[in-house]
Design a protein around this nucleic acid. Sequence first.
DNA 1: TTGCTCCTCACGTCACGTGAGGTGGC
DNA 2: TTGCTCCTCACGTCACGTGAGGTGGC
Lengths: 131, 131
Amino acid sequence: MRIGALAAAVGTTPRTIRYYEEIGLLAPSSRPVGAHREYLESDVERLREILRLKALLGLSLDELREVVALEDARARRRRAWAEAPDPRLLDEASAHVDRLLQLVSRRREELAAFESELHSRRQAILAARER
Amino acid sequence: MRIGALAAAVGTTPRTIRYYEEIGLLAPSSRPVGAHREYLESDVERLREILRLKALLGLSLDELREVVALEDARARRRRAWAEAPDPRLLDEASAHVDRLLQLVSRRREELAAFESELHSRRQAILAARER
DNA sequence: TTGCTCCTCACGTCACGTGAGGTGGC
DNA sequence: TTGCTCCTCACGTCACGTGAGGTGGC
């Protein structure tokens, strides 16, 4: 899978992917200089998650780098768990998910508050029509 | 109220306010060149709404300019309604609110979907601990 | 008078967009 | 061989951040 296919799969552009590689947000696919970059299906998942966090939470690329580091730690834990199931790995895993949940649910609450404010406005308009 | 107080009230910087004025997103407060900008309580409401749409929906300043135009139209309708209540004004008003509601609720649904995905992950971790 | 905030350039930065000119694979 | 996509500079743009040097009001 080349860069154009990856970009299309996640809804972005090749330039963005190259930029993320440049700043160290995505690992550079090892290749001779000037050769085409090659990607796997797992890169689609990974990049999609990154872009979703960016779009939904408005995270900067610096903040995303932290989340990506946490995702990497998660992947390492899964491999470690496969070799030797240690409950402490589960603690770390749930701490990570809890942190993401906190970010996402706070944002969702803000949106819900705004939405109900808009519903109130709507009600006021309908009430004015009744009179 | 001067620019620093406005910025603090809405949680942004004077530079951002000047930039928004520069690109025509905020109306320039009429004043002699070099004199201090003066703002009203209504400017706080207005800017707060703009920044909220930007932060929660990720709108660009170009897109915000459209929304601001709609908000202006809304203010004009309110004044027109005060003078002569015409039901057509209510139709326009509810069309505007409906559009904002559409934007906000779609975004909230995306966040809710992400959140439930995270909850699933959490459940999987807890289930692993039971075994 | 002394701070503090304000003013206007103007250059820097972040996250890419957009060609310019050239090479590689179905 | 012809398109199409890819490559690497490198400059442009959007939305501000950050001084530089100076003026204004409690």
